[in-house]
Amino acid sequence: MTRTASGPSRYGRWGFLFCLPALLFIAIFQLYPVLFSYFISLHEYDLLSPPRYVGFKYYLGLASDKAFLRSLGITITYVVYTVVPVLGIAFWLGWSLTKLGRSRGVWRTLIFLPSVMPLVSVALTWKLLLNVQGPVNDGLGFLGMAPVSWLTSSAMAPWALILVSWWHATSYYTIIFLAGFLAIPRDHYEAAALDGARGWSVLRHITLPSMKPTIALVVVLSTVNGLKTFAFQQIMTDGGPAGSTQILTLLIYKTSFSFLQMGKASTYSVVLFTGILVISLLQIWLLRDRHRHA
């Protein structure tokens, strides 16, 4: 009995020891910076002199901080116009892939390619493609259309980045949807077919309910990734022209490392983090599988 009782505790000790390096890594490189951000958000700190406590000054100033409010608006627009279409396109592509036979593997690989390409190279390539005198406008010219100021117009640049994000994000989520579709047991469809269900009816009563956890995962992931996006905006426009693509992450980067206002930048980070947390929890709650928990 004694041996049996001490077993789990011994395993627990060893288990803890095995986990310790990972726990230390998380504590030092993830938890500590997050907590330090909270601490710094209550201080005036320019990296060059010691932090000075200012309480909630930066939080109270957010409502009248034009740069923050503008970036927040740009970020929300970007996320809404990225998540919704990407969800639809990836769902449709994933579904289409299930209909393919032998060629599925090839198409799956081709669709997934954008996700494995280095982000910096992809962003630089798109920057060249979308140059006013670049290939995309050459193509439009061939079709008799006027060139578009993709990256040099405040009106067009946010849309250009949204389009690039569709291309990039769709590839990843398509594969997740494909995995979800393939996990639905075939006998559900066979039973539905025996009952005479077709097309929309199958989608509504079999596919969508079975895909709910996958949809929830993709919605949460794409929203979080959309809110955290940085590379495309930094490389393709650097937030310009005239700040029209300056999303929150870029504002945080510039406020901290160009303007050396670490307290203010940390406040923005805390707000962004809280926003991501709340939105994610809300999405998980809304998209939870009620039947499974009933």
Binding site: T152, S153, S154, G240, P241, A242, G243
Partner: peptide, 9 residues
């Protein structure tokens, strides 16, 4: 800089 990029448009 932002002002310049605005009147450039």
């Amino acid at each position: 800089k932002n002002a310049i990029e605005q009147f450039a448009q």
